[in-house]
Amino acid sequence: MKVPTLASMAAEGKKPDVLFWVGCSGSFDERAKKITKAFVKILNKADMSFAVLGTEESCSGDPAKRSGNEFLFQMQALVNIELMNSYNITNIVTTCPHCFNTLKNEYPELGGNYIVQHHTQFLNWMLKQGKFSIKGGKFKGKRITFHDPCYLGRGNNIYEAPRELIKKLDVELVEMKNCRSKGLCCGAGGAQMFKEPEKGNKEINIKRTEQALELKPDIIAAGCPFCNTMMTDGLKSKEKDDIIIVKDIAELIAEAQNL
């Protein structure tokens, strides 16, 4: 797979139009890596000028900040900013809403000023620019519901970009009881991904999965690697993972185009 790094491009005296910030999940997590690869396939298909930081990338600091470790967050942020500024980065796209939010909103005060886009925004922009087109493909007519990631939706008021893409797939988009600004969290945010939940009577991802199951969808679309994991686990524990799949929007688009 053609994945240029910033370092290799800089060595050739070149600079990409956009940095693809992969994120830790997208780099290491088996499930999330598929999202990363799907997105890169689309970028390559459209012949976009992009690069990744590769081994120079480091955690954005989101889970440290949300855990209360401001020191560690700012260490990560300042190191990342220094690196990206040294490459004169101006545009960033990322498939992780947590990285997206942190880079976009919390880095500027620390000296990192970039135009940051979530991949669903970027893909919409690519469509409008005519860089590529979407046909329904194998998902045509399927019943799809979209789970709003908190840090994309409420956190940054981005509700329509993912939905516009889904609608392009000729599918039936159905909404859960809690959607858009009232979307229910998958349970992973605020560093919950990395710890056992507090004592309660139910897991949050089960509650959210139940809301999705009420709609009897074929596919639960996600826009965040953490939500993806939580919803997949939810389906497994409801023993519905054989009939319903969780897919990132990038995967849906890549697969629909047989990439």
Binding site: K37, V40, T55, P63, S67
Partner: peptide
């Protein structure tokens, strides 16, 4: 998790040198 970020730059105990392995898959 925070120890992992400090040491490896990721919340999981992965080697940062393996960050781009996905590109070869």
């Amino acid at each position: 998790m925070m120890g992992n970020i400090e040491n490896n730059g990721a919340p999981w105990p992965f080697n940062n040198q393996d960050r781009l392995l996905w590109a070869e898959e």
